[in-house]
Design a protein around this nucleic acid. Structure first.
Lengths: 343, 343
DNA sequence: TACAATAATACAAACGTTTGCATTTTTTTA
DNA sequence: TAAAAAAATGCAAACGTTTGTATTATTGTA
């Protein structure tokens, strides 16, 4: 049985070369204060001994971990994954790693995750609040401790008090619905998500605004606010909705790619033709809408870019003076309506 | 301008209460060596001062970070995300966090990531090798240093030398193809992925084995090994393939959900009826196959469970004596064929 | 060849914990 | 009521770095 060998540390190199730890440390740092020939000796020895710096010790000493904590409501939503990709890309370019946690759509978990990040493992935090998140005291308390925080998506602006990035949900859905109206649709259904979630409220608002502006009647019957938190059940919810309505819509605006696809599926199965009988629009555009037959018209969300922007704001904070009351930055990203076969 | 306050540490509590740091530390640990009344005092003070233990200092002192490093070939593949979810679930239950990196399908990045994990930030590593990964010396060198490693998916068993978890790819695809044959299909096309990747080799093997066993002719023309590394181009590749063939297949076995969906899309657009004219089978089953119209028959990969299993193996290693030469464990997970409308 | 100026290196404290062992305090016992 | 036993606390080293300052070695200058 071979036991694992101990890591080699600065001290080992120092002893071997008969110099001090400080010199070894500085040599490996390429600090010009140590003679070139010594530096070279140290490098050579470090390599031959298989030296690897200890990140933890470094962090303790420097007070920086170069880790960014990320809290998202769930993993199984392409939007969040895409944002994380964006964060990761930007972070890596700036020598940071990211540590992702899911709050599983629960305020309690969100708080717990946040608290666990308070233990100094991360230099800053990126968070997308759950729909349950109504108060922001937990976030503010983190900020007050001087830990940089950036929020994205689903923010109630009035209360956040932190840098954040979002898309113009109301405008985006207004545009989509307006497009349907201009295509002469009269019975436009709306399929949204849990009412508590800010993004869905905004998307609903955009729908109502457009309907109002063009004087199109809004039928309560044609409005569904899905509230399944689990993907598995969304399907059933949408099926039931269509079973229950007496007015046949000629267009459907949905607040999610998944809702859009499930809607199309349900309608196709029921024998409707898309877009001849009904038009369908989705929201998000993360790949599936394009593959489906017919392909789905979508609002694109610049998810990857959102991630990059969020990371940028955070890393900017790292480099700013430690002013707790600095002016909060808000970035709004633009969306676009991508036309496909479903309209 | 309000400056951020310094973190409160054990020393601060100790000073305030006029006791030693050691006692505070043990009190917070609920160590019975310190008097109950003292413990209570300490807890109260810690709370009122807003004490949060410093994870980094703890790690340095204990030699454990409670972080698991995970390296996957890419983020934008639901399979890997699902595995990560499984890892995360199991890890959290055992008080570990996970740090995910993508090797972006490049051996070089894989190595770099691995090296960065050698710096003591993680207690162990979970890795899914890229298709470029032919030698395992970088992995072995990590293992030799005593860092626990577990691999999953896409392993060349003969060379890995580490615990690993995989599915029986050849068996799975054999089953799928056999099913098609028993449905009396005669011209069965195969759409696989990059030839260098072990999982695709195995899935191809399963196809060939089944064809051979039942004496079905294999047409080279009906075989495609996609080699786009980027999702965007897979579509074009598959379209071209179908444009180029002169034999019309009556069934298509594809090695990926995405290939399956793209295939269905292409066929539907070309006017074929599924499953009347052609049957299609996918591989993976991560949600989309069920939504598509017609829904797609798939081989299920127990991705989430795979993640959990991988994490379990790793955490088991943490608790084993430090035997570098311990007998490697290999876990094979079962797949299933889920029948849907596309066959 | 002595002395300053400069270059190279070493010492030791600090980062915030944990923990073995020593010391002090309290309780028990005779 | 003093000694022994048990309980509570404190001291200091350790974890592996970084870094300000002190020290030593090497040059250059007159």
């Amino acid at each position: 049985m071979t036991l694992k060998k101990k890591r080699v540390k600065l001290e080992d190199i120092a002893r071997k070369l008969n110099i001090s730890i400080a010199t070894v440390s500085r040599a490996l740092d390429k600090n010009p204060r140590v003679k070139l020939s010594t530096r070279e000796k140290v490098f050579k020895e470090a390599k031959s001994m298989g030296y690897m710096p200890n990140q933890i010790a470094k962090s303790l000493s420097s007070g920086k971990t170069n880790i960014i904590g990320v809290i998202i409501p769930r993993y199984d939503e392409p939007f969040f994954i895409e944002v994380c990709r964006g964060i990761d890309r930007y972070a890596r370019q700036h020598n940071y790693k990211i540590l992702i946690s899911s709050s599983r759509n629960s305020f309690e978990f969100e708080r717990e995750n946040l608290i666990s990040f308070e233990r100094g493992l991360v230099d800053g935090i990126i968070l997308s609040p759950t729909h349950e998140t109504e108060t922001f005291t937990h976030i503010k308390s983190i900020i007050k401790k001087g830990i940089p925080v950036v929020l994205f998506d689903n923010i109630r602006e009035e209360v956040s008090g932190a840098d954040h990035v979002l898309i113009e949900d109301d405008k985006a859905s207004f545009t989509a619905v307006e497009f349907l109206i201009k295509k002469d649709k009269k019975r436009i259904a709306f399929i949204g998500g849990i009412k508590e979630k800010k993004v869905f409220q905004d998307r609903y608002k955009g729908y109502l605004d457009a309907m109002k502006k063009y004087n199109i009647p809004v039928y309560d019957e044609l409005i569904l606010h899905c509230d399944s938190l689990d993907r598995e059940f969304e399907d059933a919810e949408i099926r039931e909705f269509f079973n229950g309505i007496s007015i046949t819509p000629d267009a459907i605006f949905t607040c999610t790619d998944n809702y859009g696809l499930l809607t199309m599926k349900t309608l196709l199965k029921a024998g409707y033709k898309i877009p001849e009988d009904v038009s369908v629009i989705g929201f998000g555009d993360l790949g599936l809408g394009e593959v489906f037959v017919p392909s789905m018209t979508c609002i694109t969300q610049p998810s990857f870019e959102m991630g990059q922007k969020v990371a940028e704001l955070l890393i900017d904070q790292f480099n700013e003076p430690n002013d707790v009351n600095h002016r909060k930055k808000v970035v709004k990203l633009k969306t676009e309506l991508i036309l496909r076969e479903s309209t």
